[in-house]
Computed example of a mutant assay.
Amino acid sequence: MSDSIPDLFKRLTQGLYLIGVADGEERNAFTAAWVMQVSFDPMLLALSINPEHSSFALLEKGGAFSVNVLKSDQLDLAEAYGKPGAPEDFGAPDWSAGEFGLPLRNDALAWFECKAKYIAPAGDHNLVTGEVVGGKILDADATPLTYADTGDMDGAAALFPKSFGG
């Protein structure tokens, strides 16, 4: 049994998502695992994003984001959009544009459209809270992809400290 800090954090149940951002005709998408429901009334979701990430400026300017819930067999998409130089083709048949021009993945399990409400610093990332203004389940029988399914695809294990408190 491993008691490494990365293994410990892999036990937090979290999905894997493609986050879409847009400002005018400019669009981007990136892989994220840090997404959660915040409130029922109003209906709010939050995500964590590195403010140095190229998509953060688009999110700020466009004032909205989409959350595309990936299926268990879409690890290749998570990997492709988790690296610099991610694919930039947001046309049909794989993508459609939402209410704010946000990229919505047509083969995802589901998607949400959110209007950004609050942005707050949170360590080396920013926490962005958005009001859910739309959503759709595309494949109710699919199993969601989880962060634990990725192994160390994102290289995050190297970012954790070797021990607590010191």
Rank of each mutant, 00 (worst) to 15 (best):
M1F: 08
M1T: 01
D3M: 03
P6N: 09
L8I: 14
K10V: 15
R11Y: 08
R11W: 06
L12G: 07
L12A: 04
G20C: 05
G20M: 04
G24S: 07
E25V: 07
E25P: 11
E25A: 11
R27P: 02
A29E: 13
A29Q: 10
F30W: 02
F30Y: 08
A32F: 09
A33M: 11
W34C: 06
W34N: 03
Q37W: 10
Q37F: 13
V38W: 12
S39L: 03
F40T: 11
F40G: 05
P42S: 08
P42E: 12
S48E: 09
S48N: 01
I49N: 14
N50D: 15
E52H: 12
H53V: 07
S54G: 15
F56K: 00
G62H: 08
G63N: 13
A64Q: 11
F65R: 03
F65G: 10
N68V: 10
L70T: 13
S72E: 15
L77N: 06
A80R: 11
P84D: 15
G85V: 13
G85D: 13
A86W: 10
E88W: 07
D89C: 06
F90P: 06
G91C: 03
G91K: 03
W95L: 11
S96L: 05
G98M: 07
G98V: 04
G98F: 10
F100H: 12
G101S: 06
P103F: 07
L104V: 09
R105V: 07
N106S: 05
N106H: 06
D107P: 05
D107C: 03
A108Q: 02
L109D: 04
C114P: 04
C114D: 08
K115Q: 10
K115E: 15
A116I: 02
Y118R: 01
Y118V: 01
Y118M: 00
I119H: 06
D124S: 05
T129A: 13
V133M: 03
G134T: 04
K136N: 13
K136Q: 12
L138K: 01
D139E: 14
A140T: 00
A140S: 11
D141W: 04
T143F: 07
P144K: 00
L145H: 09
Y147T: 01
Y147F: 11
D149N: 05
D149C: 00
T150I: 09
G151A: 06
G155C: 10
G155T: 03
A156F: 11
A157V: 02
L159P: 09
L159Q: 09
F164E: 11
F164S: 04
G165R: 00
